[in-house]
Every structure is written in structure tokens, then in C-alpha cells.
Simulated scan of single mutants.
Amino acid sequence: MSLYDDAVRVLKDYAAQPPLRDAYLRHLEEHSDGVWKACEAGHITASALVVDPHRERVLLTLHRKLRMWLQMGGHCEPGDTSLAEAALREAHEESGISGLTLLPDGPVLLDRHRIPAPCQWHFDVQYAALAPADAVQAISDESLDLRWFGYDEVAEVADDSVVRLLAATRARL
């Protein structure tokens, strides 16, 4: 199965956020390259909110370009065969943590946001991942900082999209 086919399957199986989910599916119907960064009309991205093993904190990265505290995530790459794989790869690359496991039952949230030209939109498919008990994080080249935040601290440092992702993740835990 191709990444494109997996994205369509994942989105069709995702029961929440029907209007937004349908917008993602329409985008993919209209753009056969809609999972790739080169698609200037917008493209699918995959991210994961990393939760500590005690389920009390989340790991956020201070994004180098955006200067914002965000979950780990980014563009799909040619070697990715599924959105889940892309989200796990990105989470591992940006956190340095090996052994992350996604929460079951697929994505926890969708978040579409505008991005600077030449592209128009990121259609982010958001997962949540549990860190193993022996997790040791390491700052990547894409980050200025990497830090664990208690659930009640997230709204003080992150934007509404991360706060919504945390709420959806906590409902799934």
C-alpha cells in the first residue's frame, strides 16, 4: 500500500471532525501528490504528541524556524509507508527518544493550518505517542529546545492547536 492509499484509508476510518476530515479527503482526491511537500496547494503532514510513561507530562520542542513550542512532526518522506510510521519517525528524529509507541486507534486529532508561500496548507494528522520508562530526549537540529511540560503548563507556553491536541490525547489515555 502506498502512503497516499494509507492516508486515504486512515482518514476514511477517522470518525471525528467530519467536516475537516472531508476537507482532507477532498484535497487528496484533487491532488494525487497531496501527501508530499512539493504539492503547493497543501500537503499532509504527520505529528505526534509525546507523553511521558507516567502520563503526567508531554514533551514539546521549541521549533527553530517558528520559535513556538510544538509537538514533534513534519513532512512525509519517500520512505514512509504510512502516516503512523511518518509520525513515529518524526517524533523519534525530533525527540531523540527510541521506543516510542503510538496510542491505539489511529490519529487523535486533525489540524489544518496555513503556511507561507509557495505552499498554502498543512493538513496535519496528529497522533499521540507514549515514551518508554527509560526515555532520554536529545535536541535535534530542528529545535532550539526540548522540554517536558506538565499538562497544566502547556496552555502557558503553546498555542491553541497544541492545547487541543493535548485535550484529545488525554481523552484517549
Rank of each mutant, 00 (worst) to 15 (best):
P107H: 01
L103P: 03
D52W: 09
R9N: 11
A167W: 04
P132K: 11
G96L: 05
G73A: 10
H92P: 00
E90S: 14
R21T: 10
E156W: 03
D152C: 09
L3G: 07
P78M: 07
A86L: 03
R170N: 11
W121F: 09
L173E: 03
A87K: 01
L166M: 14
E156T: 13
D105H: 01
E77I: 14
I115M: 05
A38S: 15
E77R: 15
A15D: 12
L66N: 04
D111G: 00
R164F: 01
P19D: 13
E56H: 09
Q17A: 13
P18A: 04
L165M: 15
S98D: 12
K65A: 15
V162T: 14
P18M: 04
E153L: 02
E94I: 11
G79L: 10
C39L: 01
L11I: 08
L103D: 00
W148N: 08
H63F: 06
R9W: 01
V163K: 10
L62I: 06
H113E: 09
W36H: 13
T101A: 00
V10L: 09
A168P: 02
L110S: 14
R114C: 08
V58L: 07
H92G: 13
S82I: 07
R170G: 08
S82F: 00
A117Y: 05
S140V: 06
H75S: 14
V8R: 06
P107T: 10
D33V: 05
D80Y: 00
A117I: 04
L109R: 10
L59V: 07
D80N: 05
H54Q: 14
F149T: 05
V50G: 07
C39E: 12
E77S: 07
L20F: 02
D152P: 04
A129P: 00
D105R: 04
V50C: 06
A135D: 05
V163G: 11
S47P: 10
D80K: 02
T81E: 03
G42P: 13
V50K: 02
I97Y: 01
P132R: 03
E94G: 12
V136C: 11
D159I: 05
L25H: 10
E29V: 13
E156I: 00
L100V: 04
D134Y: 08
D52I: 13
D105W: 02
S95G: 07
A16S: 13
H92D: 04
R172C: 04
W69Y: 13
T81M: 00
D124E: 15
Q17L: 14
A167Y: 04
V8Q: 01
A129F: 02
S32V: 10
V162G: 09
